[in-house]
Simulated scan of single mutants.
Amino acid sequence: MKHISDIKENNKRSILKLLYQNKPYSKKRIAKKLSLSASVITKLCNELQDEGWITEQSTLNSGKAGRKEIEIVINASHKYCIGVVLNHLYTTIVLTDLQMNVIEKQRFDTLQESGKHVAQLIHSLSELITAHHLAPSDILGIGISIKGKTDGRISFSGIWETPVDIASVIEEELQLPVYLDNGIRCSALLESFTYEYRTFIFIKYMEPGIGGAVMKHGELLRGDHHLIMDFGHQIIDPSADYCPICKRRGCLESLISIEGIIQTLKQSFSPKNDPTLWDICNGDKNQITAETIVAAAEAGSIELNQLFKKTANDFAIALLNTVALWDIPRIILIGDFFLSRRFVQYVESALLELQLSPQTFSIDYNIHDDEDLSSIALLLKHELV
């Protein structure tokens, strides 16, 4: 049996987790949601308020006569949070309050030499802390969302060729708690913070890569090698070339990565090959991005709509394979191409073509992913909720 103090702390964490959802909560509503008595919730909320984590705000309109309900919110100014998003293209640092409001944001290129990059990262973090006159006690900690395989301390692949113990180095230098995890899992955590979904498959299709995560009863699944739901590295076309990351033939990432598509389009870029994309990019191949590709497809580019159909079909195959293995009925898709109405239609058409039985899962197209805050969600998950 759990010790009573453990139960108490878990209940406090559950209260804080609720307050991060996009819903107004009073003590009464928290008690109902957590199936705890009003007296227990009142005592726990009073303790959290005395500790500085929560505060009372406005009166809630319940539409009923009687005692007014007071909204309980996270006390934004109690602590600062630092987040880092690190992939092979760029590194972003954000400073937020406890309500995840961004106070400052920096972005710089990721260096190919790991030692130099980690040193630059530490320097930038130190400057940020100094510029805002923050003491260690003012900071909740540092969350790092990183591309590729990681065990929570070391980056094994995805950015550099050799393993790099990022978390320990930064922790030692800055004397702050540091939490590291794969970028897809961090984004799935952020999704679980914002919504009430406790079990879902999360898939992210953006320029830095394609990946997935599984949230089961509110907990992220990992696997012995931290590779559960390695969505982007399913083999789709074994006749294609080997992927430089997973070393498998014709994985989804090697076939439809946005970075690869951009490079291919740059090589064939001309007013003859795709006049629509040419006009949208003003004849400058360096303007080819996921955003301009979507704009050209929506404007009627024949070439890009053909590309979208093939890409959507490959994506649908991987999605159906994933659903068949996991049997989880809610799918959340995040990605640049989902901004395109045509691309979404091609995905849904491919799903209909590939299965004759009724679809057993629902898809939420969330379109955008606030990637910068995913690292903050990781930090909050470990330190607060």
Rank of each mutant, 00 (worst) to 15 (best):
D97Q: 11
N321A: 09
I203T: 14
K309G: 10
K12P: 01
G335Y: 03
V323Y: 14
T162H: 08
I159W: 00
Q120C: 09
L221H: 02
L384V: 15
S239R: 08
I170N: 10
P24Q: 04
S301K: 07
Q175G: 06
L255Q: 06
S124K: 14
A350Y: 06
H3A: 09
T59A: 14
C243L: 13
T289V: 00
L86V: 09
T110Y: 02
V385M: 11
Q287N: 15
T264P: 00
I376K: 01
V323N: 04
K309C: 10
T42V: 10
Q21E: 12
Y195L: 04
N61D: 09
S340P: 11
D97F: 03
L86I: 11
Q267E: 04
M229R: 03
D274E: 05
K272E: 06
Q49V: 03
L34I: 11
E207W: 01
A290C: 07
D314L: 14
V102R: 03
D109H: 08
Q106C: 07
A290N: 11
F338S: 02
A318S: 08
R13N: 05
T322G: 15
D151E: 05
T199Y: 03
I142M: 00
I376G: 00
L378F: 05
G158D: 10
Q99A: 14
L121E: 01
L319V: 09
G52A: 04
N366F: 10
L379G: 02
P238A: 04
L44S: 10
P163K: 09
